[in-house]
Simulated assay, not measured.
Amino acid sequence: MNHIGWEEPFCGAGNNCFRIGTDADGNAYIAVSGAEDRYLTDTREALANLIRDIKAGKADHLL
């Protein structure tokens, strides 16, 4: 398994916190903070687009 470097948690107001991580191969990961052993993975670009949409309020129900 690749080593995942996790960023600081991002927390929405009154919602779960999540973390974004990357590995040396450029793969991106997202997980609920505190449950980093159960993550989703995709390309960094796809996860970056997801985060931008969440921050823009397009998918705030996912947090």
Results as ranks from 00 to 15, higher is better:
Val32Met: 10
Ala59Met: 10
Ala35Lys: 11
Ile20Trp: 11
Ile4Gln: 12
Leu50Met: 12
Phe18Trp: 08
Leu62Glu: 11
Ala24His: 05
Lys58Ile: 06
Cys11Leu: 13
Asp37His: 14
Ala24Asn: 03
Gly57Thr: 03
Arg19Met: 12
Thr22Val: 00
Arg19Ile: 00
Phe18Val: 14
Ala31Thr: 02
Asn49Gly: 15
Ala48Trp: 02
Asn27Asp: 12
Glu45His: 10
Ile51Thr: 06
His3Val: 07
Ala46Val: 13
Gly57Tyr: 04
Asn15Lys: 11
Asn27Pro: 00
Ala48Ser: 05
Asn15Cys: 07
Ile4Pro: 15
Ala35Ser: 15
Cys17Lys: 04
Asn27Met: 09
Asp25Trp: 07
Arg44Cys: 01
Glu45Arg: 10
Phe10Trp: 10
Leu63Arg: 03
Arg44Ala: 10
Ile51Cys: 13
Gly34Val: 15
Ala35Phe: 12
Arg52Tyr: 10
Asn15Met: 04
Thr43His: 14
Trp6Cys: 11
Thr22Trp: 02
Ala31Cys: 14
Asp60Asn: 00
His61Glu: 09
Asn2Trp: 04
Trp6Asn: 14
Asn15Val: 05
His3Gln: 13
Ala31Asp: 09
Asp53His: 12
Asn49Gln: 12
Ile20Gly: 03
Tyr39Ala: 13
Ala48Thr: 12
Trp6Gly: 09
Gly34Glu: 14
Glu36Leu: 02
Leu47Ile: 01
Ala35Cys: 10
Val32Asn: 10
Ser33Met: 09
Phe18Ser: 10
Ala35Gly: 09
Leu63Ser: 01
Ile4Lys: 13
Cys17Arg: 04
Asn2Arg: 05
Ile4Ser: 05
Leu50Pro: 07
Ile4Cys: 09
Ile54Glu: 04
